[in-house]
Each structure stands twice: as C-alpha cells, then as structure tokens.
Design a protein around this nucleic acid. Structure first.
Lengths: 150, 150
DNA sequence: GATGAAAGCTGCTGTCC
DNA sequence: GGACAGCAGCTTTCATC
C-alpha cells in the first residue's frame, strides 16, 4: 500500500459514488491502473464494503442513545448469549466490550424516548445478569465520520 | 416513502455496490422505476452519501478508544473552539455532546496505545477547560453496523 | 512489473407509452 | 410502473516503457 493507494482509499472513504475516471484524475493515474488498484484493495479486504449512509433525521431515527452496561457474569457462555441478543435488536447499531468501569457500551438509534424505552425493555428481558444499565442521550453530534485517517 | 423505498434503502445500506438491476430484482421492480426511486431518495437527502468502509485492522488502526470528557466551561464560544479542535484531529471519528454525568463522548481509532497517547496530548493541548478526561479501550467489537432499522 | 491506449460490453440515464 | 434507445463508464486485452 503506497501513497497512491492511500489517495484512492481517501477518495472512496469520502465518496464511493465517484467513477473510476474521477478517482484516476484525482490521484493522477489513468483509469486502467486505478481500476486494478481498487480491485486489489477490494480483493485484499482493505475495502471491506461499500454502503449507503441514510440521514437518521429523515427516517425518524434521529435520537442517538449510549448505554453503559455492567454484568455480574463474565463467562464465555454469557457473552455468547448477550451477543446474540444484541444482534437481534436492530436499533442497537454498535456494541463494544470495554476496559474500565463499564463492561459494555451500546450505541442505539431510535425515534424517541418512548422508542428507546421499548428497546431498553427488549434488552433487559432477553439479557440476564445485568447489574447496571445507565444511558446518556446524544444532545448534539459534534462530529461523525466513517473515514479513517490513513 | 413506502415499503418499496424501504426495501431499496435496506439493500443499499447493506451493499451500495449493487447494480440497479440487482436491486430492481430484489424488490420486484423493473430497473427504470427502481432507478427513479433511488434518484429521488438521493435528491431528498434520505441517502446522505455512499462511502467505502475500510477494515481498520488492515490499515493498522485496529484500536478503538472511547473518551469521556467533562468541562468547566459551557459557553457557546467554548463549544465552537472545542468543535474546531475535534474536527482537526483525524483520529477522532465521532464526538457527541451528552446528557448525564459526562459532557462529551469521543470515539477514536488508532494503531496502538502510544498512538492514543499522542492523540490525547493533541487534545489536551488544543482544548482548555477540561476537568476530566477518562478513556476506555474497546476490547472487542461485539456489533458494528452503519445500517438503520427502517 | 506496472502503466497507458483502445475495444467490447454491461448497465446507467432519459423519453415515451 | 414498464419498454426501449442512446450512451457513459466498467472491464479486459494488448502493446509499451
């Protein structure tokens, strides 16, 4: 992966709808080698996938909630169960196991406080052994990006 | 936005490299009306953008850190300054102003603990008035998705 | 060993029904 | 919403440095 690949990745991270010609012009290559580099980056898995990002406010999912969980159970089987429950709840868009005071962090996209409450109920019904569930609402998205600094 | 639009959006959220023909087949439409619906969803801003997602592990940015901030200054001008500083640090991929015990939550992608430390230093140098900076490392990505539940 | 030019062909975009 | 036509852009092959 050289400078040209990084330029290509930066262009595609920012806008995956660009034509190969557009990208080739941006990075100073003709379209054929540019296409081959992109194909290699896809084959190698560096470009994991291409997705469309939807404006949450326009589909009535403009409320982001972060939920911090603590559990009394740290077994592998509990994590498996927890993992399946989290995967089954569509409103949960991210879940991380953390170091530090909290065991897990969830990021949730919902339409309203009531909607969040229904997700909360789904969660505590399907997951046993939680000793703490505390939530913070996002008041303002100061920054949001899916681009990595290469 | 009817059921067909939702089907189209779900397909594109999952894989934006699908051809219009592919999507048309999936949702049971011929290609032209399918294309017109996609164009309208783009023009309306429902489809905000199309991006390539890069595998963080393959570009040496596999370490995710969450940072919780508290500030003693809650003025508009402080937020403006803070916002600019956050925007200037590429490793910070998300920043939310929160309700609850912490004022701000950052999500950071770095290569190592040392790399995180350099981001930490950049942050505390460029932002004054922080009274608490505590970080948690993500040990495991239990779930990650950019798709919204429509 | 990678780039550039050119050809074929798939699939996008616009008009008409 | 569907059918069709024109055309832009993707993908492949071949020659070149």
């Amino acid at each position: 992966m050289d400078q040209l690949d990084i330029k290509i990745l930066n262009a595609l991270q920012d806008d995956a709808s660009l034509s190969i010609q557009d990208i080739a012009n941006k990075v100073g290559l003709s379209s054929n080698p540019c296409w081959r580099r992109i194909k290699k980056l896809e084959d190698d898995g560096v470009i994991a996938k291409r997705v469309a990002l939807i404006d949450p406010n326009l589909v009535n999912l403009g409320v982001t909630v972060f939920v911090f969980l603590k559990t009394e159970n740290h077994s592998k089987s509990w994590l498996d169960m927890f993992s399946r429950s989290v995967a089954a709840i569509d409103e949960i868009v991210e879940c991380h196991r953390l170091s530090g005071a909290n065991d897990y962090l969830l990021k949730i996209q919902v339409s309203s406080i009531d909607h969040y409450d229904s997700v909360y109920k789904k969660l505590v019904e399907s997951v046993t052994g939680l000793t703490d569930v505390s939530s913070s609402f996002s008041m303002e998205k100061v920054k949001y990006s899916t681009s990595l600094k290469l």
